[in-house]
């Protein structure tokens, strides 16, 4: 039997979600960690008391990390990686991720822009044949992406959330909610982009 995957505590889950999602309202943080809003809000308040997160009030307000929160997250996420002994496994999965990343960006670009008669123009989504070809390629891509997310989840359970969110975004897009390809805050690209940020943060690799 392989060791069960390491499970992250709720406080670190919430802190780290803000690190990867960026400045966000309660609903988005709750969606990112996959826990009910009241639970997440309670954690956020505790984190705010500890000086690690801060809330900007108002219509365009939301939650964000403080400098201290960013530093605390980096340290705790690094400790988690080493305590669980999964640095090698996550590094390997990150390299697999990097092979897939250009393909996903190609697919997103193909969804947004289309080349016809040698002219590249915005895809106006009036050709269902074209859109469904792109979505079929997304589905094909997802099978490979899911395998990488499975490797990650086997190492650190928190990565399972990306599996669920990516699968959900794809299912919604294929059932006609086209915003779930790149536009929505829960879209396939948005989740993938956060996964990219999470891998960099987890492995302590700076965006250069």
């Amino acid at each position: 039997m392989p060791n069960p995957a390491h499970a992250t505590g709720t406080d670190l889950l919430v802190l780290h979600a803000l690190r990867c999602v960026g400045f966000a309202g309660l609903a988005r943080v709750s969606e990112a960690v996959g826990l009910p809003e009241p639970d997440v809000e309670s954690e956020l308040i505790d984190l705010a008391v500890a000086g690690l997160v801060t809330r900007v009030p108002g219509d365009f307000g939301g939650w964000g990390l403080t400098e201290a929160g960013r530093a605390a997250d980096a340290e705790r996420i690094r400790d988690e990686l080493d305590t669980a002994g999964v640095r090698t496994a996550v590094t390997r999965a990150y390299e697999d991720f990097l092979v897939l990343n250009p393909e996903l960006l190609d697919l997103c670009t193909a969804w947004q822009m289309r080349s016809v008669d040698g002219v590249i123009a915005p895809n106006d989504h009036t050709d269902p044949g074209y859109d469904s070809r792109v979505l079929e390629r997304f589905a094909d891509f997802h099978r490979r992406a899911d395998a990488v997310c499975a490797e990650l989840s086997a190492a650190l359970l928190r990565f399972q959330r990306y599996r669920d969110r990516l699968a959900d975004a794809l299912a919604r897009a294929r059932s006609g909610a086209l915003d779930y390809v790149v536009d929505d805050m829960g879209s396939y690209h948005t989740v993938w982009f956060q996964l990219h940020e999470d891998l960099l943060a987890t492995l302590g690799i700076p965006r250069h």
Binding site: G22, V182, E197
Partner: peptide
């Protein structure tokens, strides 16, 4: 990075030093 999303939403346009037409920023 995803941390720039709210700034992008507020901005009229964006310039980046790195990345190509199929980068996260472009998408």
């Amino acid at each position: 990075s995803p941390l720039d999303m709210h700034g992008l939403a507020a901005a009229a346009g964006v310039v980046t030093a790195r990345g190509g037409p199929t980068s996260h920023a472009a998408v």
